[in-house]
Design a protein around this nucleic acid. Structure first.
Lengths: 220, 220
DNA sequence: CGACGCTGTATGTGATCACAAATCACACCT
DNA sequence: AGGTGTGATTTGTGATCACATACAGCGTCG
């Protein structure tokens, strides 16, 4: 139980959190133009915290500052694929570190998350949240805040597109099967097996997301 | 010749660039407390662009916002080592992509940079700049802005400590020898050899930097 | 002599205002 | 009818002001 310094919620952080969620959940679609003033008005705050929040989102790569505009980052299918490749390398490293330090308590929690994901009738958002929690929860065992933060940021970049994918598909059994297989490898401490499984899992996800994205682009 | 959109220099960007350089070059030491107002005064601008710039630096991990203070990020030797490990994975991926697309023009420029590094009487800052340019110039051939930006950011995190190291050592021949070896592998398209060499090179650098850092900590 | 508590200052946060430039619209010219 | 130039509006940028609170310095008490 490492005590994080208590951060009293500042408006800045709140705006950042809401915008981050809005973008990654797909509520604000990639390519959409944002205006600082409208956001400020809708949140009933001044433009200042919105500016700060957008700056931080810019550094995460979620928005892009133009000459006179702020737009939600729009990735081409090719870029999405690149980001997935980057994610893979980072997550493989995290897996290496995590598998060596994972404890029984961690395993229990991972198991519980998977159980939650088996629950029928999950919304796409709920499934995405649980899916992310499963992976990140495991990587937390790596005990590297730097790596974890990096993975989170890179994850965020492709999250909007996973939201698109998840909203069109209602069968996650294949993905869930892979999760169980990976958890089993983690339990047995099979690192090389886990690395392969992770690559396979991410490739599978990437292919699905990218093809869904290309299909959407072609139809427009 | 891909045309970058013309960014007229805003005060914000200028402040960001200066602070970034000040931190990575070691002029602002890790752990140092910053005050928005003093920075604004010294740059003869208002506090506003400084705030924006610091927010962006925060997202890059170069500064940390406390409750009532902004401090330059201070990394423990252990954290520095972690970041080097992350760098390695990212740079190996970049090497994979770059070695397949590198062209004669790129090779010429890399050669020229190495020649510049052979120049005797280089200051520590100059050597660091050239060293970074050599590696990043190669990775530019990967043609992935996302990966490149990520590497740049992660690099920045350990740059201050490389500055400490570089200021204490005046013999870079070992490092330079590794560079020449790597460039030769690039020329011959020997990917697996390059991956090993990259790992060796970064491990060597990390060990040197970390031990210099620990030595400095022990003596204080 | 040291620890605790209070007060004053310093400083990040948020709001409001002013400005310049980019964008859009409409009208005009070719 | 299509392209172009001009004006109005939008909108990000930067400055200044007000405020609440963390932090330091000092005094007092045990």
């Amino acid at each position: 139980m490492e005590a994080q310094p208590i951060r009293v919620a500042t408006v800045n952080d709140e705006v950042y959190a809401r915008l981050h969620k809005a973008i990654t959940s797909g509520a604000l679609l990639p390519g959409m133009k944002l205006t600082i003033r409208s956001i400020a008005d809708s949140f009933q705050v001044s433009t200042m915290p919105v500016r700060d929040a957008l700056r931080r989102l810019e550094a995460c790569g979620l928005v892009v500052f133009g000459r006179r505009s702020v737009t939600v980052t729009l990735l081409s299918p090719d870029e999405v694929e690149q980001v997935f490749q980057i994610r893979l390398r980072l997550e493989q490293l995290a897996a290496e570190w995590a598998i060596a330090r994972v404890g029984p308590h961690d395993l229990d929690e991972l198991e519980r998350i998977l159980a939650d994901m088996d629950e029928p009738g999950l919304s796409a958002d709920q499934w995405r949240a649980l899916n992310q929690r499963f992976h990140l929860r495991f990587y937390e065992a790596s005990e590297s805040d730097h790596l974890l933060r990096l993975i989170r940021d890179v994850w965020s970049k492709v999250e909007p597109y996973m939201a698109i994918y998840a909203s069109r598909v209602d069968d996650f059994s294949e993905s869930q099967q892979q999760h169980r297989f990976m958890l089993d490898l983690i339990r047995r401490g099979d690192l090389s097996g886990l690395l392969v499984a992770t690559a396979h899992h991410l490739d599978y996800t990437a292919k699905t997301v990218v093809s869904a994205l290309e299909e959407r682009l072609a139809s427009s």
